[in-house]
Each structure stands twice: as C-alpha cells, then as structure tokens.
Amino acid sequence: MLNAVVIFLMVSGFMLFFATTVGLLRFPDFYTRVHAAGKGDTLSTALLLAGLIIYYLQDFSGEALLTAVKLSLIVFFVFLASPTATHAIIDAGYEAKVPYWTKRKPSADGEPYPGPERRREDRQI
C-alpha cells in the first residue's frame, strides 16, 4: 500500500523532471528556458524526496525520524533557494542583454521589447 504511494510520488516527480528537461532543450530562448528550469525543479525535487522519505520511514526508528527531518530540511531549502537562484540567473542574463524571442510588435505604450526580428544583438556572448 505504502509502496504504491511511493511509486506514485516518484513517478510523478520524474514526469515533471522529464517535462523540465524537454522544455530546457526545446524552448526558443534563454528566458523561456528559465521558466522551464525554475519551476520544474522545485516540485519535481520535492515529490521525489517525499517519495524517498515515505519509503525510508517504513522501518520506523528514532534515527530514521531524524534522517527524515533532515530530508525535509533539504526540501525546504530547495523551495527557498531555487527561486532565488532562478532570479539571480535571469537578472544576470537580462543585464548581459541575452537575445530574446518574442512575437510582439513594438508599441508606444511602454512595451519593453521590440518585434521578433529586431533582437538586441549589440553584444555577442
């Protein structure tokens, strides 16, 4: 019974990581890749680790409980650190003027990006 829960959690986490990797490989530009990596990482890691925690707690003891608390600390830390790292990466890319991909046309009402063909290629990386 518990094994079914473990398998469900770990397989769903694995599927999310699969989608993250596919997004990382096929999205058109850096900013959209950040979307795929930054979101898929957190929940898939949490699901995989939750499955491992339940599997590990099956033979219960004090030491196992302590290890489970440490594992939950890792989950907590990933939830705190992953958005921060994502933010640092996308800010660095924005500052370095990484070329972007968009379908929007330039407009007068403060739209930050010009059209899809006019990339900001004033700096090659």
């Binding site: 990797t21 990382l24 850096f30 890749r33 950040v34 990596a37 990482d41 680790l49 790292a85 990466i89």
Partner: peptide
C-alpha cells in the same frame, strides 16, 4: 540536460543547465 550545458548559445544558458543538473544530483545521492 548536459546537452544544454555543452551547446547552450550563451554562458548563462550553461549556468542554468548546471543548476538543473546539480539539484537532481541531490536526489540521486539520496
């Protein structure tokens, strides 16, 4: 994901790929 690190057009793409690999390494270690 390592393909993005090797091929990624910009340096920042490579950093992103390394970050994704690193988080999953934690799960693999456990």
């Amino acid at each position: 994901s390592l393909f993005r690190v090797v091929a990624g057009p910009t340096v920042i793409d490579r950093i992103l790929g390394v970050n994704v690999i690193g988080i999953k390494t934690v799960v693999l270690i456990i």
